[in-house]
Structure formats: C-alpha cells, structure tokens
Amino acid sequence: KTVHVDGVEYRFNNPEEADKFVKRLVKEKNGNVEVRGDTYHVE
C-alpha cells in the first residue's frame, strides 16, 4: 500500500499499518481520502 500526503509518498508492507496511518492523518487534517488502486491520497 502507498499513501500520498502533500506530495510525499509513504510505503507500507502491512496494509493494517497503512490504514491506521491514513485514519490518523484524516483526523489531524480533517481531510479526505481518495483511494486509487493500491494508493491512498490524503488531502
């Protein structure tokens, strides 16, 4: 899984860790998540 945040790319081998990371980011930023294939885009 890959997570894109503000143009920075984070790669996770463990999908659960990627999910936790995304949830935390969305809370912090009050942002939205767009999923494209295996990539999460957080804005």
Results as ranks from 00 to 15, higher is better:
K1G: 04
K1S: 12
K1I: 15
T2F: 08
T2E: 02
V3L: 04
V3D: 00
V3C: 14
V3S: 00
H4L: 14
H4A: 05
H4R: 11
H4T: 13
H4S: 12
H4K: 12
V5G: 01
V5I: 10
V5Y: 12
V5D: 01
D6Q: 04
D6I: 01
D6N: 15
G7P: 00
V8F: 03
V8H: 08
V8M: 06
V8N: 03
V8W: 03
V8S: 03
E9I: 13
E9C: 15
E9Q: 06
E9Y: 09
E9G: 01
E9P: 04
Y10S: 00
Y10R: 00
R11T: 12
R11W: 13
R11Q: 08
R11Y: 14
R11P: 02
R11S: 08
R11C: 12
R11M: 06
F12G: 02
F12K: 01
F12W: 01
F12N: 00
F12A: 01
F12D: 01
N13Q: 09
N13E: 14
N13K: 09
N13R: 06
N14F: 04
N14R: 02
P15C: 15
P15N: 08
P15M: 08
P15E: 14
E16Y: 05
E16S: 05
E16R: 03
E16T: 05
E16A: 08
E17P: 00
E17L: 01
E17I: 01
E17D: 11
E17N: 01
E17H: 02
E17Y: 00
A18W: 06
A18S: 01
A18P: 01
D19A: 11
D19N: 04
D19W: 15
D19T: 04
K20A: 15
K20N: 13
K20W: 08
K20F: 09
K20S: 13
F21M: 01
F21W: 03
F21G: 02
F21T: 02
F21E: 03
V22C: 11
V22A: 04
V22R: 04
K23D: 14
K23S: 12
K23M: 10
K23R: 07
K23T: 08
R24I: 11
R24G: 13
R24H: 12
R24T: 13
R24L: 14
L25Y: 08
L25M: 08
L25Q: 04
L25I: 12
L25N: 03
V26P: 04
V26M: 12
V26T: 08
V26G: 04
V26I: 13
V26N: 10
K27T: 09
K27C: 15
K27V: 05
E28M: 06
E28R: 03
E28T: 05
E28I: 06
E28V: 05
E28P: 03
K29G: 13
K29V: 12
K29Q: 12
N30S: 09
N30A: 07
N30W: 12
N30E: 09
G31K: 06
G31Y: 15
G31P: 09
G31V: 15
G31N: 08
G31R: 06
G31Q: 07
G31H: 09
N32T: 14
N32G: 07
N32P: 04
N32S: 12
N32H: 13
V33T: 04
V33I: 08
V33R: 02
V33H: 03
V33P: 04
V33W: 09
E34P: 04
E34H: 11
E34I: 15
E34D: 09
E34S: 12
E34Y: 13
E34N: 10
V35W: 09
V35S: 05
V35K: 08
V35A: 05
V35H: 04
V35F: 10
R36E: 09
R36K: 11
R36N: 10
R36I: 12
R36Y: 10
R36L: 11
R36H: 09
G37K: 05
G37C: 12
G37R: 05
G37E: 10
G37L: 09
D38V: 02
D38I: 03
D38A: 02
D38E: 09
D38F: 02
T39A: 12
T39C: 14
T39M: 07
T39W: 08
T39R: 06
Y40C: 08
Y40W: 11
Y40T: 10
Y40H: 06
Y40L: 12
Y40G: 05
H41F: 15
H41C: 13
H41E: 09
H41Q: 10
H41V: 11
H41A: 08
V42C: 00
V42I: 12
V42L: 06
E43K: 12
E43C: 15
E43Y: 15
E43V: 14
